[in-house]
């Protein structure tokens, strides 16, 4: 009996590169899905730099143990969250672990956490193609994850790393559900001129070259950054006012399409 038996679909959010917005995409994808009435879980397997508690304004929450297993944090009636961030005594504490220990923790997250019935479990990952990624794929191989959403920023230094992640997906037979180009342009609040700080088009080209669905270019939105920084636990309801909400609802539809048409 495993804690993820009640989970219908599993989607991973991956990127070879760090700081491109994996956690931000995970959060927004989860909110878009729950706005469509889905039961969603977020599992954050970035053990040395967990960002999900901060993204959702859940820092300081404690994970409880029940007879069925660890109880994930209930962020909303349709959203459950689990992250190593909830297990630290002090938010500044470092987790200095070598591979085998990280592997064991991820296994525990996937077997000992009682997720209950979920439509979607979204797994947020650290950058790279190493212990965490190998561990999660090995642990999930019987569950056959539905696929991965790849996040990149437009510049070629970032897409070069994401190409490696694509090789990883091919090697482990993980379907790619699509590519999101994040941080694509920034609109100046003074003159409304859009500047491509990290250039543009990199993600789209990456998707075209590999024959993947291009899920969209998401601009930098300082409002969303501010919303997250405010640590308002109502992010989930406030998000619908963000201009990104409309775009992410479309992205979520594109992600869901191949999954839902299968079942």
């Amino acid at each position: 009996m495993s804690g993820i038996d009640g989970v219908k679909h599993i989607v991973l959010v991956l990127s070879g590169k760090g700081g491109v917005g994996k956690s931000s995409v995970t959060t927004q994808l989860a909110i878009s899905l729950l706005n469509k009435g889905k039961n969603v879980g977020i599992l954050d397997i970035d053990l040395t730099g967990p960002s999900i508690p901060r993204m959702l304004g859940l820092e300081g929450k404690q994970v409880l143990q029940s007879t069925a297993g660890w109880v994930p944090i209930q962020a909303h009636k349709l959203l459950k969250v689990m992250s190593l961030g909830f297990l630290l005594n002090n938010r500044g504490d470092s987790v200095v672990w070598r591979g085998p220990k990280k592997t064991a923790m991820i296994r525990q997250f996937l077997t000992d956490v009682y997720w209950g019935d979920l439509d979607y479990l979204i797994i947020d990952t650290p950058p790279g193609t190493s212990d965490e990624h190998i561990a999660v794929m090995e642990q999930l191989k019987e569950f056959r994850p539905d696929g991965a959403v790849l996040v990149t920023t437009p510049q070629s230094v970032a897409t070069a790393d994401v190409r490696k992640e694509i090789s990883f997906c091919r090697k482990v037979n993980l379907p790619v559900l699509g590519v999101i180009e994040n941080m694509s342009g920034y609109v100046c609040p003074h003159c409304s001129e859009c500047t491509y700080i990290f250039s543009s088009g990199g993600g789209k080209n990456l998707a075209l070259e590999n024959g993947f669905v291009f899920l969209g270019s998401v601009p930098i939105d300082p409002q969303l950054v501010a919303l997250v920084e405010k640590q308002d636990s109502n992010l989930i309801s406030l998000y619908s006012e963000s201009p990104l909400a409309v775009q992410f609802a479309e992205i979520a539809d594109k992600v869901l399409e191949p999954i839902e048409s299968k079942t």
Partner: peptide
């Protein structure tokens, strides 16, 4: 901080709230 190349106005993309 980011200085817009068009209007030279400065803005904080990743605001230092803390």
């Amino acid at each position: 901080g980011f200085v817009c190349p068009n209007c030279k106005g400065e803005s904080f993309i990743f605001a230092p709230t803390t």
